[in-house]
């Protein structure tokens, strides 16, 4: 029987010297769901994502991404995941199209595949008008969509988004989330970190992270019910105070 999990994490830990950035966390992400990681800056969200993407080696614990071991099968993992960070890692001196081609190119897409992936990106994000503009000349909201498009050129099974909406206006954020829903509808598992409470409400399931530990996990509705609060924000404040 095929595994129903996209990500499976057991007792995962990462220390930097004496500082424990991620402290024995365990969780699973189901295939096709939007899984949120909510927490303040420095809670350990980015460190966790970096370990799952193969950018950082864990200190201890186990984790499987798309059934591949993050210690031994990093190459297989990399072929199957997409990653977008809060920095929108784009080349400002390249055009929108050149960025798309480059990020497709480093996954080994041939010209035919590149062509299809580019037109898909244009179709879903509406970047068509900006295709030949230098990336430094387009507004931040568009850069964000471009960064997302670049991360999914190779059609990853799992998409990791590390605070993807940082610094972007509310309308752009809303548009961005509808893109994420489209991807999830298409079967992509989305793993997203955020410190925006309203965004947390959009997730299928949510884990709340504080000081390197996961202190609550469940769907937004379950969390609100079990803590008897009106919103995730209240749940979060209540939990962090303890």
């Amino acid at each position: 029987m095929e595994n129903e999990f996209s990500v499976k994490v057991q007792e995962l830990t990462r220390t930097f010297g004496d500082f424990v950035a991620v402290d024995h966390i365990s969780f699973q992400v189901y295939k096709g769901e939007i899984f949120g990681f909510l927490g303040a800056n420095g809670a350990g969200k980015t460190t966790t994502i970096k370990m799952l993407c193969g950018l950082l080696m864990p200190t201890s614990g186990t984790a499987y991404v798309s059934d591949f071991d993050i210690y031994k099968q990093t190459e297989e993992i990399k072929q199957n995941i997409g990653y977008m960070s809060q920095k929108f890692s784009l080349y400002e001196d390249l055009t929108v199209e050149e960025n798309l081609e480059f990020y497709g190119g480093i996954y080994g897409l041939n010209n035919h595949e590149l062509k299809i992936a580019c037109s898909q990106a244009v179709h879903s994000t509406g970047l068509g008008d900006h295709l030949h503009k230098l990336t430094r000349d387009i507004p931040l909201g568009w850069k964000q969509r471009l960064a997302l498009s670049c991360a999914i050129m190779h059609q990853p099974k799992i998409l990791f988004l590390d605070e993807p909406t940082g610094g972007v206006d509310p309308i752009s954020r809303r548009n961005f989330w509808s893109l994420i829903y489209d991807l999830a509808d298409g079967g992509t598992t989305v793993f997203v970190t955020t410190h925006y409470m309203d965004e947390a409400e959009y997730c299928n399931r949510l884990s709340i992270m504080h000081d390197g530990k996961i202190i609550a996990i469940g769907s937004p509705r379950e969390l609100k019910q079990s803590y008897q609060k009106e919103s995730i924000e209240d749940v979060f404040i209540d939990l962090v105070k303890k």
Binding site: L55, K78, Q79, E92, Y103
Partner: peptide, 13 residues
């Protein structure tokens, strides 16, 4: 510095 290296390193390259 710009963070693009990180983006390249998550790819199989």
């Amino acid at each position: 510095e710009s963070g693009t290296m990180e983006q390249i390193l998550v790819s199989p390259i």
